[in-house]
Structure formats: C-alpha cells, structure tokens
Design a protein around this nucleic acid. Structure first.
Length: 291
DNA sequence: CGTTACACCTGAGGGC
DNA sequence: TGCCCTCAGGTGTAAC
C-alpha cells in the first residue's frame, strides 16, 4: 500500500505527537517474519527509551531513540501506523465494518493484526502498528549500526534527478517501469506513482529502459516528484488500507490519472485506459498518450 | 551481473 | 451460501 507519499504523510503527522515522549512498554504479537528482531528483544530494548527523531528513507521510517539506537519500520502492503482514538472502517475487520451503518466510523480497538503497540509514560495516546498481511517490518538497529536494507537504497525519489534514473536505465533492457520501481535506483517510488509518472511523462511502462532517452528520464523523474508532492499535500492515497495516523483517509485516490482506472477514459485524450502486467505488477496506461 | 518467477500472508471480490 | 480463483500499494531470494 504505502509508497513514499503515504510514508511521508505518516512521518509528518506522527512526529509532533511522538517526539520527546518516553516509551513505558511495548506490546507485541508472537514471533513472525514481521519481526526482524524478535518481539521479546524488541520489547526489552524499547522500554524506557525517549523518542528523539523520526526520519524517512524511501519507504522506511526510522525512529531515533535516546542513546542512538533506532527502530526501523516498513509498512509493507497493508501496514497502518496510528494513534489511540483513530476511527475508520479501514481499521476494522470487514465483518466488524459490515455490521456498522455506512456513515459510522467505529473507534479502533487492538486486534490480532495489531503487531506492535507503544505505551508511553505520559499516559497519552498509544501508537499502534497494524498490518493484516505482515509484509511490513520492524527491526531494532543498535546505536551506530545501519543495515543492509537501508544501505542498498538509492537516492530518495524526492531528491533525485533525471541523471540518476538515466544512469541506471541505459544499462538495462528491463521495462522502464521495473527500473523506476527498483529501490536501489530511486528510493520511494511504488506501483501507483510509477504508473502515474509514466503517464504524465508520456512513456509506455514496458519500453526497454535502455531505449528511454535522457530527456525522457528527466520528464519521468519530474513527473514522479510532481505527483508525489501533490499526493503528500492531499494526505496520500487511501485505496484499501492506508489511513493517516489520526484515522483520516488521504485524498490522492481521487486525483489518480490512470492507476486503477482501466476501462475509463484517459483524462487527456479520451482513449480507453488499459491494464496489463509489467514485471508481475498490475500496470495502467493510456495507449494513445504513452509511446 | 541482469532478469524473471515465486515466495511470504491475509482478505476481498467475482464467477459458478 | 459456499467454493475456488485471482488480485492487492512490497521486497527478498533462487534459478536461469
């Protein structure tokens, strides 16, 4: 679910309610591959730590703790980070949501998918990390240590230039979309914004990367930054699971040009938007605007 | 090395 | 109603 914009909105909205607070205890579900550090160890390490910073690298969040250790978080496909009091049908099982009147948004209560809960010494709002599919990740990084997952990330997509994309693209004949999704090239671009960027830049997603010119790479990166910045402004894309930390939906799902719009008219030329598969990912494009 | 296929996990939605 | 299939915003790994 979450790509750079959703992670950045989460970071911005978490920060003011997290920084300076002291973790009293952490509650977890049992060991699973969601926990790169075992839940036992994680709970022991987190207890009594003050939160000093919250940074984003690509789609990762790094919670900086007193003493220099960091907590690495990734939201995977269905991860949700939010506070006590958040209210949204996206935070409920479908059976629970179905029993509600459509306009009612029930307040979240911890369930089997809530893998990490942070409680604070100030008794203020708890922080929940819920993730139905468990593709998300939590890892304890000791002071002064990085990790392979972070070290291999390329330049953050918001800081990138067309030169960054072109340097990788000219060496590869994989589809340009696959290169755009490669986190070692630009960190943060995911399936929604890759499709949106290629649409705005007028480039077919399956075009061989080494046949995309420097000028086109410039246009693609510029378009990617444009849609991502706009998505951040609107609070990100809430299509199935993503919620903001207060429980609100983002707004960018209403501004998509092609993603999830197969069979609809292209907003530019009116041709029918098509859906295909590129690199095993659902891919949406306009057959007339994109060459 | 680059590329592809698949695995990880759960749930929603469509077809029959 | 139930069953079976496909699909989903991500990423790591194995095999060619």
């Amino acid at each position: 679910m979450p790509e750079l914009p959703e992670v950045e909105v989460t970071r911005r909205e978490l920060s003011p309610h997290l920084l300076g607070r002291v973790i009293e205890r952490a509650r977890t579900t049992g060991p699973s591959y969601f926990f790169l550090t075992t839940p036992r160890t994680l709970s022991r390490r987190l207890r009594g730590r003050r939160v000093e910073s919250l940074e984003r690298r690509g789609k990762y969040l790094l919670l900086g703790l007193e003493g220099g250790a960091r907590l690495l978080l990734h939201l995977g496909m269905t991860g949700q980070l939010f506070f006590d009091g958040a209210s949204s049908v996206r935070l409920l099982s479908s059976t629970a949501a179905a029993s509600l009147a459509p306009e009612v948004q029930a307040r979240f209560t911890p369930d089997a998918h809530t893998h990490l809960t942070l409680e604070f010494e100030d008794d203020g709002p708890r922080l929940f990390f819920r993730d139905v599919r468990k593709f998300g990740k939590v890892e304890w990084l000791p002071a002064g240590e990085s990790c392979a997952r972070l070290d291999k990330l390329g330049v953050d997509a918001l800081e990138a230039t067309g030169a960054n994309l072109h340097a990788a693209a000219k060496k590869r004949r994989a589809p340009i979309k696959s290169v755009l999704l490669d986190q070692r090239v630009l960190a943060g671009v995911g399936n929604i914004y890759a499709d949106e960027a290629l649409f705005l830049a007028g480039v077919r997603p399956d075009r061989a990367a080494n046949r995309v010119s420097r000028a086109r790479c410039d246009a693609i990166v510029e378009a990617a930054q444009c849609v991502m910045l706009r998505s951040i402004e609107t609070g990100g894309s809430s299509i199935s699971d993503y919620v903001r930390p207060g429980g609100e939906d983002g707004g960018y799902q209403d501004e998509r040009h092609v993603y999830g719009r197969e069979g609809e008219d292209c907003p530019t030329c009116g041709a029918l938007i098509r859906k295909t598969s590129v690199g095993q990912r659902g891919t949406h494009y306009c057959p007339r605007c994109q060459r």
